[in-house]
Design a protein around this nucleic acid. Structure first.
Lengths: 208, 208
DNA sequence: CCTACCGATCGGTAGG
DNA sequence: CCTACCGATCGGTAGG
């Protein structure tokens, strides 16, 4: 017997559903993502789409997980080769700008985490919990890298990692808004200027 | 004949619809705001609700306008008495924090403009245009006040008003996220620390 | 993976 | 402002 193709094919179909779901949810939100729309886009029946997930909530969680993988690939992986501390922080922040500016094919409506964060921030449920968890994980990553930069003497000793993390997140929320809502081409340059100040090396601290 | 009450009553009903609509849209978004939900909440029929607006889009625009009036009353009016320039900027920013932190009765799901901005940033149409316009008006207000503070020598002469406006907006987007999604009680304090740096008086520029 | 179907709800209209 | 209704679409199920 040749190996059954159905299991691998099912996995491939599931991947196609998730990729399309990410694109739709980026524009319409995770609630605006409907099973009927997915089925039409993919040339499938609604039951065929839903069969892979069972419920819409499970589909939403799978789409969120898929988007997380995209974020890791686009922002985290390119920075992994940089030295820990400030060099890696700068690499992460530059990749983060590129992710918001250029991943239009994957996220035509902008960063799905920003969309989902605002969409679910006043609700309960597993999707909201997953969004909050991903947000906390990313903030902890940034704070850990900031602590390492402080310990290495690359950032001023009185730097508050949580404070800088908060300001970094704010910069990227503003960048997403200027790119998506206001279509302002100067937004990436403004983000880089803000980063230059937030991540100014310790040696330059008293000179500005 | 006594003056007809119906016109005044109709206006009062319209106001009740908008107030309830703001609260619902703050949680569910302007698309998630449905005429049926509004009718149920207000003990009216769907046709009775829709009759005041004609279409859902007009209802959404009216709710947005109502939210704008709330924002002006909560953030702009309290700062009007402050002196132009840096004092008014600081008053605006402090009222802005209070607006996000305490207006839970009006906006149980957080700032409606943040919600609507993300919800419509990948769409076309009149609602998206209105959201973008309100966002631009507020940014211009902040930039004008910043220019005045620079001209008065209250902020360093090399301050870029658009740059600081961008960073201010980012701070408040991050504050909204930390309050709504992460329920972090330290968020207002972090915002104030960021403001102290962004709006540091010119005289203190070389001392930090 | 499909067809065929379910009750609920959507925005909106007719007519009063 | 109401009742009564429209076609479309929602998430989900039965049965294959």
């Amino acid at each position: 017997m040749s190996p059954r193709k159905s299991a691998a094919e099912a996995r491939a179909t599931r991947g196609r559903i998730i990729d399309r779901g990410i694109a739709i949810a980026s524009v319409e939100g995770l609630e605006g993502l409907t099973i009927g729309r997915l089925a039409t886009d993919l040339g499938m029946s609604k039951a065929g789409v839903l069969g892979h997930f069972g419920t819409k909530e499970t589909l939403q969680l799978a789409v969120l997980e898929g988007a997380s993988a995209v974020f890791v690939r686009a922002v985290w992986h390119p920075a992994e080769d940089a030295a820990p501390g400030l060099p890696r922080l700068r690499a992460l922040c530059e990749a983060w700008i590129g992710y918001l500016e250029h991943e239009r094919a994957v996220f035509p409506g902008g960063c799905l985490f920003t969309t989902a964060s605002v969409e679910f921030d006043a609700r309960g449920g597993r999707v909201r919990d997953a969004v909050a968890r991903l947000s906390r994980v990313w903030r902890r990553r940034l704070a850990a890298e900031l602590r390492q930069a402080v310990a290495a003497g690359e950032l001023p000793a009185d730097t508050d990692p949580e404070q800088v993390t908060y300001e970094l997140v704010g910069c990227y929320l503003a960048l997403n808004q200027e790119l998506q809502l206001l279509a302002d081409p100067e937004a990436p340059a403004r983000t880089r200027r803000a980063l230059d100040r937030l991540l100014a090396p310790a040696a330059a601290d008293h000179s500005r």
